[in-house]
């Protein structure tokens, strides 16, 4: 394994200064559950590693002015155990709970999961339906993007060399909103998503009339995608079993179009319908009982 210079900055300003001043192939070490393997298998050969595990004030989950703000170094376990997220953004709770094993959830971070830009990321589809914003900080200032806008292919982002993702935030969904996440892996625990779906449905107060719908699919393209035409099936109409069936068909079409001609296509064409139907039916029931 190649030698690298190791830094463990104590606060974010120090981290940004180091990141800005050092030369060579530099990597931010968050949880490291992907990075440590990649370094050991020599898939990457960093000259500088900046470890944020012990950097202060990057691990928090808080409510502020109608928004939920999550520090990028919050672990998946932090997110799962947050009552705030369980209550207000169940889709994120469920997606984080489905990731890896207890051991990996205890160490991996939500920021690392976003920046790793895996096609099969569990957190990103959930954050997309929450319309989450990410905050990128550098010595020269702050940039903000919608989470999907920083993802530029497999393991690629548009972050500048001197930027660190510090915070993820989203507006707290209204009381008339239901959300959820479903994924299909090869087994229940420790599986990488073969296909996943996140969904948010908001209805007009005391009706079943859909005010807003957001659907995101994971592991069908290089990065998760929004299934806009499937969302349009729902928006403005009364949610019904028939409408859900139509929506499921459109979701499957979108998945098929994005997957392209791969060996997994026949499997995914059907399985996306299965998990979509399960999720949408559940949300439908929740809307009824609300």
């Amino acid at each position: 394994m190649q030698e690298f210079k190791y830094f463990a900055p104590s606060d974010i300003n120090q981290a940004l200064k180091i990141l800005d001043s050092v030369k060579g192939d530099k990597r931010i070490l968050a949880g490291g559950t992907d990075l440590v393997i990649a370094i050991r298998e020599r898939k990457i050969n960093p000259e500088v590693v900046i470890d944020l595990k012990n950097t202060q004030n990057l691990n928090y989950i808080k409510q502020e002015n109608g928004y939920i703000k999550i520090g990028s170094m919050s672990t998946f376990t932090d997110v799962i155990e947050s009552e705030l997220i369980k209550r207000k953004a169940r889709v994120l709770h469920e997606s984080c709970y489905s990731m890896g094993s207890p051991q990996i959830r205890n160490w991996a971070t939500i920021g690392g999961n976003i920046i790793n830009a895996s096609p099969a990321t569990d957190s990103v589809p959930a954050l997309m339906v929450l319309d989450a914003t990410v905050k990128l900080e550098s010595v020269s200032g702050i940039r903000e993007f919608k989470v999907q806008d920083i993802l530029k292919g497999i393991n690629k982002t548009n972050l500048n060399e001197n930027e660190i993702l510090t915070e993820i935030s989203f507006k707290i969904p209204s009381e008339n909103t239901v959300t959820g996440f479903r994924k299909l892996g090869r087994r229940a625990a420790l599986s990488i998503a073969r296909i996943s779906i996140a969904c948010l449905i908001e209805v007009e107060e005391n009706t079943m009339r859909c005010r807003d719908a957001r659907i995101a699919l994971g592991a069908v393209a290089k990065n998760p995608i929004r299934a806009t035409s499937a969302e349009e099936v729902l928006i403005g109409k009364d949610i019904s079993q028939k409408l859900i069936d139509d929506c499921v068909e459109v979701i499957s079409e979108i998945a098929v179009k994005n997957i392209g001609n791969r060996p997994s296509l026949p499997f995914k064409r059907q399985s996306i319908k299965g998990i979509s139907r399960e999720l949408l039916n559940r949300l439908y029931m929740e809307l009824w009982s609300n």
């Binding site: 190791y6 463990a8 490291g32 393997i37 470890d51 990996i104 205890n106 160490w107």
Partner: peptide, 30 residues
């Protein structure tokens, strides 16, 4: 397994189970 899949290398860090094959040694400082 060396890739965090099997759990044989599990240790507790601050009381939480973590696979020690995915942690760089200096990360446990403090």
């Amino acid at each position: 397994c060396s890739v965090g899949e099997c759990g044989a290398c599990t240790v507790l860090i601050d009381g939480r189970a973590v696979t020690s094959c995915l942690v760089l040694a200096p990360q446990v400082n403090g």
